[in-house]
Design a protein around this nucleic acid. Structure first.
Length: 833
RNA sequence: GCGGGUGUGGCGGAAAUGGCAGACGCGCAGGACUUAGGAUCCUGUGGGCGACCGCCCUUGUGGGUUCAAAUCCCACCGCCCGCACCA
């Protein structure tokens, strides 16, 4: 028999699919659409296993839906702006554009080699002018809507990448890309007012029923909505008020000090005239120099200094000292906190270090804690004590009453604050979309008019690393004329965060050659939102939050009619080897290209889909790969054997249900049952739950079953109808997983059309149903016998059969039956005394 | 610390709603075919006992609910991930 040669088959079909434009898609209002999207890659030059897994999963989803009659959009492109290209330019002298475009073609070749069903006509690369023109257009949209603004702020700076980072990109005090601890820098930067959308980004998480709970929780925590109270503390001896934010208004009588952040604008004024000016200034500059990561960690020292000034507790009238300390962050709340050491861990730590008093104002039912017996801060709920007119109130009620009181007196108000900060989008790098703004001495900051877009990146620049965008030293780029007055002006030299490019690419795919707008609203209305988005969990906050924000802005601008871009989200697990993520330094990398060259794309895809469910981590196994290869070989030989079995006239069953007993020969009924039960199981596993591993195991069982049938029935007595149906069904169901071998075998089974254009097989419930099923009989919870019965046996019949069983009888001897539970189709459970 | 996840044979992993634990695959053992096989095909494979007839134990640990628990409840332990001075 002809051997299975994966590589030959794969290149053959890939070429034919390409020529036939097989996976091209266009809107068709008459058909249900399905937008299947995988996160597009950064073109680093080579595909890694994580990509393969991502795209293999996506391809099953896309192909499955196509076979189920959906009009499927399945595009691919490249997130092509970014630092590695620029670093390559500095290191090796290659131009970032050249480096990137070469990598794109390399990766595209890898993707094609995998046989993923992309509509390549819709390919986008974010670094091309006809794409980034629209990224710039969207920046202008943000600007017009008052959502883009420039401000000087202390921002995260990565000394390795030589650029600033958004908060989301410096999550643990380290650069998301290179892991270098970030430092603080005061810079004039462009921001997007994502905080204006904080509530909607939070509330609309409820709409995302197709998202993993985990991702929603991460976003919820990141947005960090917190309800509380702003309260003014007048400064003793000055006409100034320190405004603090607190979520624990019920503890206000426990305030024994007030703390300002080192960057607090009032600090200098407060300190002035106290004789402590120098000490405070020295302290502040020392803190400013320390790494941001140190300051932002809980284990840090909590250093502070008395400012020499006092503030007045607006409720108790008590004078409390004003301190400055590193543990208070200017970025959160008001940059000032009221110190309640008895009921806050950090305040207690700080108070103990600095000899400040501690006063308990909340106690539980048993009157704890007390000032004397306080070991740890008591942060739980309780009753207010030592709190004047509020004594005796339960803490939640106390919060409300204090808030009402403060608002009535005009010394504060209820306030909601967020952890989320505005999105810093400036980058001091070359390889990004230029921010389309111009600085004119006369007109100030002026946006580039839409009709002048794109602001093109100049090709000739000096990349030698500096702390400023290489564009600064490119006079042809910088020098321009003011769009308002026509006088000489300077261009903005920072480029945009690449996350901006990736926040809207799924819109562009719907009409990638649109020239009047970033996307054709008509096409977007048909295709969007994305029905299934698939990618890594690492983007849970960054990319996915930004994309949601963009979508909401586009909605507000009337460009789209939905508020969430991704209806269903699947976060695939990592690919591990020897228990750890594949990495160069660890030396545990498996190269997809080598794998494909050795076993073929179908084997590679099959193994990845079989080894673990998509959401879980996948432990790589070279042996497992061999197993998948063996399975495909088994399928190959089986189907070819059936196709070549000309002993009897072959009839195509075409999934028609059995009409009469005459349709089915010896053993044919059992084979048909296997076929239809497998169709049922595989369909269910793919559709609802993406359990590709169990779907594949069902196909393996089916193959085993067909082999058994062949072995049990000699050549002449086989049921050709049932066999043809089995082979057809098997190949059809294999098509989404291993598209090349399925296509080849489909043609070998004498079908003229592509397997990928066939409808997904439908099972017949009657045929799938077993004639006999096993019902277990338990005595006192232990299985004592198994009954082979008709699936429709009634409870009474089952019970009678169970009690008649000799095996069961042995365990019933001398005992009285107390109870019998019968579940038809499942079991009979007998309980004795 | 807070939030989320996870724990099942030698390994990857199965067990829709509580109802035969260990599907499928890998590995291993034995056999068949072979000059040979690391190809292919059969058989066996959680642990223990035992006249292949079976019995007992077993889903991180300890309790509980139930005729029945990997699955539900309570407490604990391990590992993984995210956030982490957020007032």
């Amino acid at each position: 028999m002809e051997r299975y040669n994966a590589r030959d088959i794969e290149t053959k079909w890939q070429n034919l699919w390409k020529e036939g434009g097989f996976y091209r898609s266009s809107p068709d209002p008459a058909r249900r659409k399905f937008y299947c999207l995988e996160m597009f890659p950064y073109p680093s030059g080579n595909l890694h296993m994580g990509h393969v897994r991502n795209y293999a999963i996506g391809d099953v989803v896309a192909r499955f839906h196509r076979m189920n009659g959906y009009n499927v959009l399945h595009p691919m492109g490249f997130d092509a702006f970014g630092l590695p290209a620029e670093n390559a330019a500095i290191k090796r002298g290659v131009h970032p554009a050249e480096w990137t475009m070469r990598n794109i073609s390399l990766m595209k070749a890898d993707l094609e080699m995998l046989g993923i069903s992309y509509d390549w006509d819709r390919e986008v690369a974010t670094c091309l002018p006809d794409y980034y023109k629209w990224t710039q257009w969207l920046f202008l949209l943000m600007y017009k809507r008052g959502l883009a603004y420039k401000k000087k702020a202390a921002v995260n700076w990565c000394p390795e990448c030589n650029t600033v980072l958004a908060d989301e990109q410096a999550e643990t005090g380290k650069c998301w890309r290179c892991g270098t601890p970030v430092t603080r820098k005061d810079l004039d930067q462009w921001f997007f007012r994502i905080t204006d959308y904080a509530d909607r980004l939070l509330d609309d998480l409820r709409l995302l029923t197709g998202w993993p709970e985990r991702v929603k929780t991460m976003q919820e925590n990141w947005i960090g909505r917190s309800e509380g109270l702003l309260i003014e503390f007048p400064v003793d001896g000055l006409d100034e008020r320190i405004v603090v934010f607190t979520t624990r208004a019920d503890t206000i009588f426990g305030v024994t000090f007030v703390v300002l952040a080192p960057e607090h604008p009032l600090l200098e004024k407060v300190t002035a005239g106290t004789g402590r000016e120098t000490a405070v200034r020295d302290f502040v500059s020392r803190i400013a120099r320390s790494p941001a990561a140190d300051r932002a960690s809980e284990g840090a020292s909590r250093e502070g200094l008395f400012t020499g000034r006092y503030a007045v507790n607006p409720l108790s009238g008590e004078r409390v000292p004003v301190w400055v300390a590193d543990y208070v962050l200017m970025e959160y709340g008001t940059g000032a906190v009221m110190g309640v050491p008895a009921h806050d861990d950090r305040d207690l730590d700080f108070a103990r270090k600095n000899g400040l008093p501690v006063r308990v104002v909340i106690q539980d039912e048993s009157g704890n804690p007390t000032d004397e017996g306080l070991a740890d801060a008591y942060v739980g709920p309780g009753t207010m004590v030592n709190s004047g007119m509020f004594d005796g109130l339960e803490s939640e009620e106390g919060k409300r009453r204090v808030a009402a009181y403060v608002e009535e007196k005009g010394i504060g108000r209820r306030h909601v604050t967020y952890r989320l900060r505005d999105w810093l989008i400036s980058r001091q790098r070359y390889w990004g979309a230029p921010i389309p703004m111009v600085y004119c001495d006369k007109c100030g900051v002026v946006p580039v008019p839409e009709e002048h877009l794109p602001v093109t990146l100049p090709k000739d620049v000096d990349f030698v690393g500096a702390e400023m965008s290489p564009l600064v030293s490119c006079p042809e780029f910088v020098n321009t004329t003011c769009p308002c007055c026509g006088e000489p002006a300077r261009r903005e030299t920072d480029t945009m965060d690449t996350f901006m490019c990736s926040s809207w690419y799924y819109f562009r795919y719907t009409s990638p050659r649109e020239t009047r707008l970033p996307f054709d609203p008509e096409a977007a209305r048909y295709w969007l939102p994305v029905d299934q988005y698939i990618g890594g969990i690492e983007h849970a906050v960054m990319h996915l939050l930004y994309s949601r924000f963009f979508t909401k802005v586009l909605y507000d601008a009337g460009l789209v009619d939905f508020v969430e871009p991704f209806t269903n989200l699947l976060t695939q697990g990592m690919v591990l080897k020897d228990g750890a993520a594949m990495s160069k330094s660890r030396g545990n990398i498996v190269e997809p290209r080598e794998l494909i060259e050795r076993y073929g794309a179908d084997t590679a895809r099959l193994f990845i889909l079989f080894a673990a469910p998509p959401e879980k981590e996948l432990e790589w196994s070279d042996r497992g790969v061999e197993g998948s290869s063996r399975f495909l070989n088994r399928v190959w030989r089986l189907v070819l054997g059936i196709a070549g079995d000309t002993a009897v006239d072959r009839q195509r069953a075409q999934m028609k249900p059995v009409r009469s007993a005459a349709d089915v020969g010896a053993g044919g009924a059992a084979l048909r049952r296997l076929t239809h039960a497998t169709i049922k199981k595989v369909t269910h596993d793919i559709r609802g739950r993406f359990n590709f591993n169990t779907a594949l195991s069902a196909l393996m069982e089916m193959v085993n079953g067909i082999y058994r049938y062949m072995q049990e029935c000699p050549r002449g007595s086989r049921d050709q109808v049932a066999l043809a149906e089995a082979a057809d069904s098997l190949v059809l169901m294999l098509a989404p997983f291993a598209p090349h071998i399925a296509e080849e075998l489909w043609h070998r089974l004498d079908h003229a059309e592509s397997v990928h254009l066939q409808p997904w097989p439908v099972h017949d419930e009657e045929v799938a149903k077993s004639q006999r099923i096993t019902v277990v009989v338990q005595v006192n919870g232990r299985v004592r016998d198994r009954l082979e019965v008709d699936p429709d046996s009634s409870a009474e019949e089952l019970q009678r059969a169970a009690l008649e069983s000799r095996r069961v009888g042995r365990f019933l001897e001398g005992r009285r039956i107390k109870k019998v539970v019968t579940v038809p189709g499942k079991l009979v459970s007998i309980v004795t005394e």
